[in-house]
Nucleic acid binder design. Structure first.
Length: 854
RNA sequence: GGGGGCGUGGCGGAAUCGGUAUACGCGCUCGACUCAAAAUCGAGUGGCCUCAGGCCGUGUGGGUUCGAGUCCCACCGCCCCUACCA
């Protein structure tokens, strides 16, 4: 007895690949390079779930295919191992985060290795190890050298209860998501990176990238380029003036007031005494609101107060009131705007609320009630002096020229992109290679002093007086610089830092003189194919592109962009099961009882729903709902559980068979059955289960040979286009077409080769049983034999008036007339033509005949 | 409000240079093998009807065409991102 037993063959081949260093890779000038990369995981406490291997499997299929196509393939893996969850676990368990992280990585590695991915394990990296973050610090020094890193007083999310600053994504509705503690805005001195200096290039260089359109668009919107003008307004009866930014300088004649952001420095200086109390109260209230609260308020009604001051409109000398309102953002443009209620919806709403003047300066080509709504579109200028009659585009050019001549304004491009807040008050991150001297001088350390390693601290939380955890390590903090006393920087870098350049470190992971050698990067250049989740569409990809461009500018990398082609895999969802009480049941512990639907109260909606799902062995009904896989819905599936039941090859093939890679799709463990049956059938095609002997070839039928070459074609095209689901169906069709007869040697080998990227273990095992000593990993990829795809006969669909009436078989060389004659002769077709005149006969070669008759 | 994506059997999905809708698989039904079960193999499986045939059917309603899941117009529903950026 020798049945398909993945539990014995899979570990054997994994061991073989490791022992033979099958997938180790190095620079090879004789081979073209191919760099595939999956976004490296954060080693969480719960291990991988079956969602993770989706991108790893896709990447592995491409890697194995490209090797067989003669490429030198870089397919590395590592761990994004700094970050908050490990720090929290460290607090909870009172252990060092490094220890916790290493344990978690060990489990991740075990899980991944059990799935047979052809990663270059000899290149594994972990961003929290000093050998790695030494070079993150090194690159930071380069950024500092270039004037791209600076300290600034900026608003942060401060959580008094936790005594720390929080990341934006940790704050929802003005509260810390984990504990519900209130969060306030506070000014703090922070490290910033001048990403805005690269805004234009980050935008322009999106052009040449082979990325999903949606991601390109998200990056464009995030960078948010706009063209307009800055215009100076003098404050009446004073020496003060302020500058507004507008994309519609052509509506200057319609400006009926100005607004300053509550944080604008001019507010206190120009507010009149009679208005002071009210203005100060408003500014104070705005300061306490988080961004989120301001946004929520924005949905309701606009607020604001009059400062008592008046500004002079430079185009007509008119005096207009100056207001303070929090719908103007201090962090964008100049923090001040001119309000044109007739042509801007936000200003219109404000005008209606406070009864301010609405003055149209464009007439659209139809009637428009300006009191009712703003008109932001095209028109001819009115109420604009010498500019009357111009179109929007003409007016813009003319008014900017005029403003520049008068010295009261200038053309200006603005970006929504802000500089990157680069420091965190955390322990578990890269320390900055920076010391502060007693006189306040900020000094970057020499590259020779790196790495600045993390000190041991007595607790992973802020000090009593609110300093970051690193301040607890007093011996570490107090140091000397060139004989002078100095204090080390106690902030750490954010989690994004390590992932900004990891794809470069993979090229030369053990280099202890440089982050990566020039010879290596000259060969590997950049990533050819990058696969990962769409959740990184903006931040990670933008940050990494920024660092890459800085490295390009200082001559360290030869390419302008890090990731040539990007592909987003769709998230794998899972069904969750919940009883009325709110308790969740794992998918393994419930069952469906068709025809036994009952009513229950949904724990989600509190409404009555019908369900035919029950907790196994009980009569407790549960409601089914699709959701993200995770702890909160108790619906995670561990890949190792699937490996135990079905084997790694089944898991890999099922992950791909579920549907298109880019699509969101639900995990259903039962779906593994079909894949496992398929692989078992493949096994039986080659191995006699009774004797365990390898079966001798019996020959390939014409149908089977055609199915084989269709499968080769589908697999080849599929991998090139990352359509990895349909080739599996074609391979199944081949196996079905074999009808249990062992195919001829040549065909058997071609089949195993195309199967191998998806199911490498069974393919290697059978390849070996066919008498090969060497791994199939570097065998040439099979070519399609077009002659195998040609049939003796064609199947032609016959339609009458566009409706299918018959299907006929004709010789492959039959001509049009012959086929039409055969079609008309068909009994059922003739019946539908009876008593009608044939008006037209359409013949689509090889496919279809349509007879038009009435 | 803006941007992007998606609606096809009981389920995952296949087919979009317009040409047999539901490939492949899950599930289900029946049959073979077996004392029995598992495994395996074979057959069937969109709905309806007056069932050698026919009608309807790819979110809804129109349109173009000999022919529409695919193209055009209008709408409905779901998901994701983003959000006062002047």
């Amino acid at each position: 007895m020798s049945r398909y037993d993945p539990a014995t063959i899979e570990p054997r081949w994994q061991q073989h690949w490791a022992d033979a260093a099958t997938f180790h890779v190095d620079v090879d000038p004789d081979k073209p390079k191919y760099y595939v990369l999956c976004m490296f995981p954060y080693p969480s406490g719960s291990g991988l779930h079956v969602g993770h291997p989706e991108s790893y499997t896709a990447v592995d299929i491409v890697a194995r295919y490209k090797r067989m196509r003669g490429f030198n393939v870089l397919n590395p893996i590592g761990f994004d191992s700094f970050g908050l969850p490990a720090e929290r676990a460290a607090q909870r368990e009172n252990r060092h985060p490094a220890e916790i992280t290493r344990e978690r990585i060990a489990y991740f590695r075990e899980q991944m290795q059990r799935l047979g991915f052809s990663f270059n394990w000899e290149r594994e990296i972990s961003t929290c190890e000093p050998e790695y973050y030494r070079w993150t610090q090194w690159i930071f020094l380069k950024l500092y050298e270039q004037g791209l890193a600076y300290l600034a007083e900026v608003p942060v999310n401060w959580c008094p209860a936790q005594g720390t600053v929080l990341a934006n994504e940790e704050v929802v509705d003005g509260r810390y998501v984990e504990t519900g503690d209130p969060v306030e805005r506070r000014m703090m001195k922070q490290w910033m990176l001048r990403i805005t200096a690269y805004a234009e290039r980050l935008l322009e260089d999106l052009e040449g990238l082979d990325w999903p359109e949606g991601v390109l668009e998200m990056q464009r919107q995030w960078i948010g380029r706009s063209e307009g003008a800055e215009v100076r307004f003098d404050v009446a009866d004073s020496d003060e003036s302020f500058v507004v930014y507008t994309t519609r300088p052509d509506t200057l004649f319609g400006a009926t007031w100005c607004v300053l952001a509550p944080e604008h420095p001019l507010v206190t200086r120009i507010t009149t005494d009679d208005r002071r109390a009210e203005v100060e109260a408003y500014v104070a209230a705005a300061a306490n609101k988080s961004d989120m609260e301001r946004q929520l308020a924005a949905d309701k009604e606009k607020t604001g107060v009059f400062t008592g001051a008046w500004a002079i409109n430079p185009v007509n000398g008119e005096k207009i009131p100056v207001w303070v309102a929090d719908y103007v953002l201090s962090t964008y443009g100049t923090g001040a705007i001119m309000a044109v209620p007739a042509h801007d919806e936000r200003d219109h709403a404000f005008a209606r609320k406070f009864g301010l003047e609405i003055r149209p300066v464009y007439q659209p080509d139809h009637d428009h009630d300006f009191q009712e709504s703003a008109w932001p579109g095209e028109g001819r200028a009115i109420n604009s002096g010498q500019f009357d009659g111009l179109t929007v585009a003409e007016f813009k050019t003319a008014i900017i020229d005029w403003l520049e001549e008068q010295g009261v304004g200038r053309r200006k491009v603005n970006y929504k992109l802000r500089d990157w807040l680069f420091s965190r008050q955390r322990y578990w991150g890269e320390p900055f290679p920076i010391v502060h001297l007693e006189d306040g001088t900020v000094v970057p350390l020499s590259p020779d002093d790196l790495p600045v390693t993390l000190p041991h601290v007595d607790a992973y939380k802020p000090t009593e007086d609110g300093q970051p955890p690193l301040a607890r390590a007093t011996d570490w903090v107090h140091t000397t610089y060139q004989g002078k006393p100095a204090r080390r920087e106690t902030n750490t870098m954010p989690q994004w830092a390590g992932s900004c350049w990891y794809y470069l470190r993979y090229m030369d992971p053990h280099n202890d003189r440089l982050p990566f050698g020039p010879d290596k990067v000259a060969y590997w250049r950049n990533v050819d194919l990058y696969i990962g989740g769409v959740e990184h569409a903006v931040l990670h990809l933008l940050y990494a592109r920024f660092w890459h461009k800085v490295l390009y500018d200082i001559g360290m990398v030869p390419t302008k962009e890090p990731f040539q082609k990007l592909f987003n895999q769709g998230m794998i969802l899972a069904y969750a099961y919940r009883e009325s009480s709110g308790r969740y049941h794992h998918p393994d512990t419930v069952e469906r009882r068709p025809g036994q639907a009952v009513e229950m109260v949904s724990a989600w909606t509190q409404e009555t729903v019908t369900t035919d799902w029950f907790v196994k062995g009980t009569d407790i009904p549960v409601e089914e709902k699709l959701g993200k896989m995770g702890k909160s819905l108790n619906n995670s599936v561990d890949p190792l559980d699937i490996v135990k039941r079905y084997g790694a090859d089944t898991l890999r093939v099922y992950e791909m068979f579920m549907g298109p890679l880019e699509q969101i799709k639900p995990w259903q463990t039962s779906g593994c059955e079909g894949v496992h049956r398929f692989l078992s059938r493949v096994w039986r095609l080659f191995v006699d289960e009774e004797t365990g002997e390898t079966r001798p070839p019996e020959g390939t039928s014409k149908e089977a040979r055609k199915a084989l070459h269709l499968a080769i074609q589908e697999a080849t095209e599929g991998i090139e286009q990352l359509k990895l689901n349909t080739p599996i169906a074609k391979m199944m069709e081949f196996v079905n077409a074999c009808k249990g007869r062992t195919p001829a040697r040549e065909d058997a080998e071609a089949f195993l080769l195309i199967l191998s990227p998806w199911a490498p273990h069974i393919a290697e095992e059978l390849w070996h049983r066919l008498g090969h000593d060497r791994s199939l990993a570097y065998e040439p990829w099979p070519e399609v034999d077009d002659s195998a795809l040609v049939d003796d006969t064609m199947t032609i669909v016959v339609q009458v008036m566009g409706r299918k009436r018959a299907v006929i078989e004709v010789p492959a060389d039959a001509d049009k007339d012959e086929i039409l004659a055969r079609a008309r002769a068909d009994e059922n077709v003739a019946r539908h033509l009876e008593g009608k005149t044939i008006r037209k006969e359409i013949y689509v070669p090889g496919k279809l005949v349509n007879i038009v008759a009435n």
